[in-house]
């Protein structure tokens, strides 16, 4: 559902001012009685509170219009054409009745064309209509700038819509990062709880950690970040390369300067392992169509990966028998 904002019908407003009392942003309290769209947060409290029903919540983005069939459009336009003609004839006749007939026909023409696909001013039909006005040759005196202003306003609204969609994309990636971190954090807590013999807490941490993985994977997928395997491998190479070439060298340097030996070791193991990962991802990318099965061996201490079980880890020296086979 699209975001909404509040509008006040001044004719119905009885100045009970409950909207002022309940508005958390002050948007309803304006000297001209028009609710400030820029300040309104769309909570709807004012509309709920208003005793005279003067406030409505209207959407920022309207749904697409009802689709009209060609036959209906054709039949309505034929009638509308006749109404417009009658309006013009009546405009040339004297008297109050002719004036009323002119007006009446104009109102009918408006209503009929509205039902022929011109209900919403921000619809594609309207945009096509405005575009045709600018593109077709028009007589002198035609207010082209007015049409261009309208096109600009409607295009700007489209851009804002895209922007708000981008905001959701940002949020998905923020949520992905948060859930990913929570997953590792709970795993660390689970390990600690296990070590302390707190079995139930350990179990809950593990279950919750898995739950965060589910969330993270879903957010990532919805954000459209999972591409083809070849592209995913390329992305992995880029990520690992950035880490071992730029990120970790800086971190190592600072840890060294600050004399934090534990951090120095953690960073340095990771940096060396990421370089190996980058190389392995690159190899896998080059041999993506290879059918012969490859095995990988993971060092559980530093995260190094080898393609055979080593005597001992080339990065941290852990014995080869500890390596986990994939």
């Amino acid at each position: 559902m699209s975001k909404k904002y509040a509008v006040r019908n001044i004719r119905l407003c009885t100045k009970d001012c409950l909207c002022l009392y309940v508005c958390p942003s002050g948007a309803t309290d304006t000297e001209n009685s028009i609710i400030d769209v820029a300040t309104c947060i769309g909570c709807g409290d004012c509309a709920d509170a208003c005793p005279s029903g003067a406030i409505s919540m209207v959407p920022e983005v309207y749904p697409p219009q009802q689709v009209k069939t060609e036959t209906v459009i054709g039949a309505l336009k034929a009638l509308m054409q006749s109404k417009a003609e009658q309006e013009t004839i009546a405009a040339g006749l004297p008297g109050k009745l002719a004036a009323a007939v002119e007006k009446s026909n104009h109102i009918m023409a408006e209503d009929i064309i509205r039902e022929a696909g011109f209900m919403l001013p921000q619809s594609d039909n309207t945009k096509a209509f405005l575009q045709s006005l600018v593109e077709n040759k028009q007589p002198e005196g035609f207010p082209k700038e007015v049409v261009e202003k309208l096109i600009k306003i409607f295009n700007k609204n489209e851009e804002e819509k895209t922007m708000s969609e981008n905001k959701t994309l940002d949020n998905l990636m923020d949520a992905f990062a948060g859930e990913s971190q929570a997953n590792r954090k709970y795993l660390a807590y689970a390990k600690k709880a296990e070590k302390d013999g707190k079995v139930n807490a350990a179990k809950l941490f593990k279950a919750a950690s898995d739950a965060e993985t589910i969330h993270a994977l879903k957010h990532f997928e919805v954000a459209g970040k999972v591409a083809t395997t070849a592209d995913n491998l390329k992305d992995a190479v880029a990520g690992e390369t950035h880490e071992y070439k730029e990120m970790y060298p800086d971190f190592v340097k600072v840890a060294n300067e600050e004399g934090n030996k534990a951090a120095l070791m953690s960073f340095s193991y990771a940096m060396q392992a990421e370089e190996v990962h980058a190389r392995l991802y690159q190899e896998a990318l080059e041999n993506l169509d290879q059918t012969e099965e490859v095995f990988y061996y993971l060092c559980p201490v530093c995260g190094n990966i080898e393609k055979y079980r080593p005597e001992k880890c080339s990065i941290c020296g852990a014995p080869g028998k500890m390596f986990i086979k994939y």
């Binding site: 054409q81 417009a84 309006e87 023409a109 408006e110 209503d111």
Partner: peptide
Amino acid sequence: SSAQIGALCTNL
């Protein structure tokens, strides 16, 4: 016609 376009514009 201009009258038709006029009605379309006031409707919008």
